[in-house]
C-alpha cells in the first residue's frame, strides 16, 4: 500500500514532540532519536506501549513521564501482547459503540525485548493479525542492564557477556535476521530504517500505521555507551551501517520487497559500497578485531555482510553481484 502522506521538514519540526525532552537517556542516545522521529509521524490519536528496556526506563522515571500520549509498560517479553490487548479492547469498544475514533497503537521494544525474550509474543501477535505497529529500536545489546549480548548483537562485538578475550574475539554468532523472520509471518508491512535518514524513518512509520494489521519496523539506533564511540558520532555510524550494507534499508509491502533509496543507490552503483572495516573501526566494541591476531574476523564479517546483501538483492529482483 502506497501512502499519500507528504510532509515538509518545517511541518515536522513544528509538530510538538509526543516523546518530550526531560527523559534521562544518555547523551547521544540513538534510541531516543528513533523514538522522537517515530512519534513525529503519528497520524492521530495514538496509544504507545513499551517493553522493559532503556527507553521505558529513561522516559518514565516516576513521577515523571516524557510521554504526551497514553502509555503503558508491563514487562520485558510482552510488548506485542500489550499491543494485542489494547487492540482487542479498542475493537470491542468500537463494536459495542463505546468508541468512534480510530486509534493507532505503537509498541516499542529493544533488541533484547524482540530478538530474544519477546519473540514469542511478537510472533503470536503477528500471526493473530492485530492492527499495530511494532518498532524494534535496535542498539544491538542489553544496554539497560550493562551491555550484555543479545540475538541482535553483531558478530565480533565485545559485550560484557561476549567479551573479547585472549582466545575468543567477542560474540561468535551472527545477528539474527529478525526482519526476515517477520516477513515470513506474511504481515502487511515490514521495513528496516536507520535514524541517519529521518525522512525515511517517518515515512516508514506512517506506512506501518496505515496498513491494516501488524507492521514491523526495525530501526538501527546506535548506542555510544555500548558501542563505545564518542557521543557525537551516533548519526554518522547509523549512516555508515547503511553505506557498508551491514544494515541495508528496505521494505516489504505485502511480501513485495524493495530497497529504500539509500540502499538502492549502493545496489545500482556498487562502487559506493564501503568496506565493513570502515564501520567497525568507528566503534571500540570491535577494537580487538583490528589486531593482527583476529583480523580474519573482519573478512568473515565482510563475507557474511555480502552474503546477506546479495540475498536481499535477489529478493528485491536486483542482480546479485
Amino acid at each position: 500500500m502506497a501512502t499519500t502522506w507528504k510532509f515538509t521538514a518545517k511541518e515536522i519540526v513544528e509538530k510538538p514532540d509526543l516523546f518530550t525532552s526531560g527523559h534521562r537517556a544518555c547523551a547521544g542516545c540513538g534510541p531516543a532519536i528513533a523514538l522522537r522521529q517515530i512519534m513525529k509521524a503519528t497520524r492521530g490519536p495514538t496509544i504507545v506501549t513499551n517493553a522493559t528496556g532503556c527507553m521505558e526506563v529513561v522516559s518514565t522515571i516516576y513521577p515523571y513521564t516524557a510521554w504526551k500520549v497514553p502509555w503503558i509498560h508491563t514487562a520485558f517479553e510482552n510488548a506485542a501482547a500489550n499491543a494485542s490487548g489494547i487492540a482487542a479492547a479498542l475493537k470491542a469498544m468500537k463494536r459495542k459503540g463505546r468508541l468512534q475514533e480510530d486509534i493507532d497503537i505503537i509498541a516499542f521494544a529493544g533488541d533484547g525485548g524482540t530478538f530474544d525474550i519477546g519473540i514469542q509474543a511478537l510472533s503470536g501477535a503477528a500471526e493473530r493479525g492485530h492492527d499495530f505497529l511494532y518498532v524494534l529500536y535496535d542498539n544491538e545489546a542489553y544496554m539497560n542492564t550493562g551491555i550484555q549480548r543479545s540475538g541482535g548483537t553483531p558478530h565480533g562485538a565485545s559485550t560484557t557477556t561476549s567479551p573479547a578475550g585472549k582466545v575468543i574475539p567477542g560474540k561468535r554468532q551472527y545477528k539474527k535476521a529478525i526482519a526476515d523472520i517477520m516477513v515470513a509471518h506474511e504481515i502487511p508491512y515490514v521495513a528496516t530504517a536507520s535514524i541517519a535518514y529521518w525522512q525515511d524513518v517517518l515515512m516508514k512509520t506512517r506506512k506501518g500505521l496505515e496498513v491494516e494489521g501488524p507492521a514491523f519496523l526495525h530501526v538501527l539506533a546506535p548506542c555510544p555507551r555500548g558501542w563505545r564511540y564518542d557521543t557525537s558520532k551516533t548519526i554518522e555510524i547509523a549512516q555508515l551501517a547503511v553505506e557498508t550494507c551491514i544494515f541495508p534499508l528496505w521494505e516489504s509491502t505485502d511480501g513485495q520487497c524493495s530497497l529504500s533509496p539509500q540502499s538502492k543507490i549502493v545496489a545500482l552503483k556498487p562502487e559506493r559500497k564501503r568496506p565493513v572495516k570502515e564501520y567497525l573501526e568507528t566503534q571500540r566494541r570491535f577494537r580487538h578485531l583490528l589486531t593482527p591476531e583476529f583480523e580474519s574476523e573482519i573478512d568473515n564479517i565482510q563475507k557474511m555482510t555480502d552474503k546477506r546483501w546479495n540475498k536481499l538483492l535477489r529478493r528485491c529482483n536486483l542482480v546479485s553481484l
Binding site: 521538514a9 518545517k10 515536522i12 519540526v13 513544528e14 514532540d17 516523546f19 518530550t20 525532552s21 527523559h23 537517556a25 547523551a27 547521544g28 542516545c29 540513538g30 531516543a32 532519536i33 522522537r36 522521529q37 513525529k40 535514524i195 529521518w198 551516533t234 548519526i235
Partner: peptide, 18 residues
C-alpha cells in the same frame, strides 16, 4: 536552516521558533 539538527537531536533541545 536546513532543519536537520532538530530531527537528529535525542533531547528535543533544538527547536524551530515560529
Amino acid at each position: 536552516k536546513c532543519l536537520l539538527c532538530p530531527m537528529i537531536c535525542p533531547d528535543s533541545a533544538i527547536e524551530w521558533n515560529r
